[in-house]
Amino acid sequence: MKKGMIVDDALVMRMRLKEILSTRYNIVAEAENGAQAVTNYKKFQPDFVTMDITMAEMNGMEALENLLNEFPDAKIIMVSAVGQKQQVFEALSKGAKDFIVKPFEPDRVLLAVGRLFE
């Protein structure tokens, strides 16, 4: 079973994503900011990451860059409410595999993660 990490500053959103993703994947780590995400990625080596953007300490866009600098094969999907055209473009051009705008349907999340391993 593929291993996942959920990064979001809101506990309710981490709970919801975990509930959706646990049906098919092993969620091995969570993080509530970008800095914690980088630390936990190194520790747990997940196969994929869902990454919020608006977070204190280190935001999701910075964490995306940091992780991809060190782990170019990291599979990171952005999950954010701030899905402006420019942000989506920026995230995808930095190497994010997909961009899910909140609020989302559970199927949209499962579809995006499923595509990573096709």
């Binding site: 608006t54 954010s80 409410a81 701030v82 055209k85 909140k102």
Partner: peptide
């Protein structure tokens, strides 16, 4: 956060 994010998409436009 979600309401503000959604509104920001409309305000930011293209």
């Amino acid at each position: 956060n979600i309401i503000t994010g959604q509104a920001s998409i409309i305000l930011a436009g293209e």
